[in-house]
């Protein structure tokens, strides 16, 4: 699916990057823990989060993420949106809670980012 499809599914509002809605997303990750995001996410992944601080953008920058979804109608400050624009990030916000947003995207065919468990570590 591409970002425009996600906007439809989530009935979302586009906060920045309107010209890049054709960008494809392949997997999703929903987290407020930046270290988890840094551990598992790749550039083909959309990040769904409730955290609006600048570190989310820096994390996205490190991973070359293309799209950020704010849940529960959150809208970050203008400086953050300017930074996002600079990074070429599409930012959208949906009124849905993170749980519902994930459910809707899953129903529409999007899947979680695959996690590789190292041989040495037991699965929980």
């Amino acid at each position: 699916m591409n970002i425009a499809d996600m906007v439809n599914v989530l009935n979302a509002r586009i906060l920045c990057g309107e010209d890049r809605l054709e960008t494809k997303v392949y997997t999703a990750c929903c987290s407020d823990l930046m270290s988890d995001v840094l551990a598992f996410v790749n550039e083909k992944t959309v990040l769904i989060t409730g955290l609006t601080n600048p570190h989310v953008l820096r994390t996205a920058d490190m991973l070359d993420l293309k799209c950020l979804v704010y849940a529960r109608g959150k809208v970050p400050g203008d400086e953050i949106l300017e930074q996002a624009e600079e990074q070429g990030l599409v930012v959208i916000t949906t009124k849905e809670t993170a749980f519902t947003a994930c459910g809707l995207l899953y129903e529409a065919g999007l899947r979680g980012v695959p996690i590789e468990w190292p041989e040495s570590e037991a699965r929980p």
């Binding site: 823990l33 930046m34 840094l38 551990a39 955290l51 601080n53 989310v56």
Partner: peptide, 15 residues
């Protein structure tokens, strides 16, 4: 509160 402190940093570096 900023999204850190998950205790994944050092393992992430090593990996």
């Amino acid at each position: 509160s900023l999204g850190f402190g998950a205790g994944m940093g050092l393992p992430n570096m090593k990996r």
